[in-house]
Simulated assay, not measured.
Amino acid sequence: MKIPPYILLVLATLLWGGNFVIGRAVSGAIPPLTLAFLRWCVAFIIFFPIAFRQLKREWPILKNHWFIVIILSLTGVTAFNTLVYIGLHYTTSINASLMNSSTPIMIYILSFIFLKEKLSKYQLIGTVLSLSGVAFIIMGGSFTRIVNFTFNKGDLIVIAAVFCWSVYSLLIKLYATRLPGSLPF
């Protein structure tokens, strides 16, 4: 059975957003490192049977590029999730989600600096729309609210997580085309 792409997009959004809500809800009961570890244990149990054949087939490629695989694991899985869960101890899931919405912008900036990529007209329009939406939510209809907006410790930790995810995304962009085979990342 093939699942339609729009269903998968909605599911991905729900799971991604739900991660912030659940992370905040259990922030007082489960330490951030434990939560990140448990989350990836569950993911491993679910996805290992699905990915085993491809992993076995691609193992020589992964083994040859072990260093980049470790860097991707540290930035995209370990650091991002752990920092988000730590940040959620000090901020709301709404604030964390708003900070997370800056991810594409940070990826653009890193791509411009390190890959010398230019922003397309559509990326620029998307960035303006995204920032406008975030500003509208933060302002709650009041311009004075944006002037008085401050970052708390948790917001800054989530921004560090966003930076880690942006580095991960940049590395994927850089290495996915250079590695042979059909790596899942």
Rank of each mutant, 00 (worst) to 15 (best):
44 F>H: 07
37 F>Y: 11
134 V>E: 02
137 I>L: 13
162 V>M: 06
169 S>T: 15
128 V>Y: 04
45 I>P: 01
89 H>T: 12
151 F>A: 09
153 K>C: 11
41 C>Q: 10
68 I>T: 09
73 S>W: 04
170 L>G: 02
159 I>Y: 06
185 F>M: 12
31 P>W: 06
30 I>Q: 00
74 L>W: 03
39 R>L: 05
52 F>M: 13
154 G>H: 03
101 S>D: 04
74 L>D: 02
151 F>Y: 12
70 I>F: 12
166 S>P: 01
170 L>C: 05
20 F>L: 06
106 M>V: 15
111 S>C: 12
122 Y>P: 00
47 F>I: 13
136 F>N: 09
145 R>D: 11
87 G>I: 05
68 I>W: 02
54 Q>F: 08
58 E>V: 07
141 G>T: 03
151 F>R: 03
32 P>G: 07
69 V>P: 00
105 I>L: 15
13 T>C: 12
1 M>H: 13
181 G>L: 03
10 V>S: 11
180 P>M: 08
131 L>N: 09
3 I>L: 01
127 T>M: 15
83 L>S: 07
164 C>Q: 05
5 P>D: 08
31 P>F: 09
170 L>R: 02
21 V>E: 02
95 N>A: 10
171 L>V: 09
126 G>P: 00
99 M>A: 11
168 Y>A: 10
54 Q>W: 08
162 V>T: 11
94 I>R: 14
79 A>R: 06
14 L>Q: 07
171 L>H: 03
99 M>K: 04
4 P>A: 08
152 N>K: 08
64 N>W: 00
2 K>M: 12
159 I>D: 01
12 A>C: 11
106 M>L: 15
139 M>L: 10
180 P>W: 01
106 M>N: 06
123 Q>E: 14
51 A>S: 14
115 L>G: 08
153 K>H: 13
82 T>Q: 09
133 G>M: 05
46 I>E: 02
11 L>I: 12
173 K>Q: 13
137 I>E: 03
128 V>D: 03
167 V>E: 01
60 P>E: 02
60 P>D: 02
6 Y>S: 11
135 A>Y: 11
184 P>N: 09
70 I>V: 15
143 F>E: 11
105 I>D: 02
184 P>M: 15
112 F>H: 13
167 V>K: 03
69 V>M: 14
58 E>H: 07
17 G>R: 05
2 K>F: 10
83 L>G: 08
52 F>S: 13
54 Q>Y: 08
87 G>C: 09
51 A>T: 12
22 I>Y: 09
44 F>G: 11
104 P>V: 08
126 G>N: 02
123 Q>G: 10
153 K>V: 13
51 A>H: 10
119 L>T: 05
93 S>H: 02
113 I>C: 05
52 F>N: 13
81 N>F: 12
51 A>W: 09
167 V>M: 11
5 P>G: 06
158 V>A: 07
107 I>H: 01
43 A>V: 13
106 M>R: 08
154 G>C: 06
150 T>S: 14
127 T>R: 02
91 T>W: 00
134 V>L: 11
132 S>G: 15
116 K>A: 10
146 I>R: 05
114 F>I: 09
152 N>H: 06
129 L>D: 07
14 L>Y: 06
78 T>A: 15
20 F>M: 03
138 I>E: 00
113 I>S: 01
143 F>W: 13
109 I>Q: 04
117 E>V: 04
173 K>E: 07
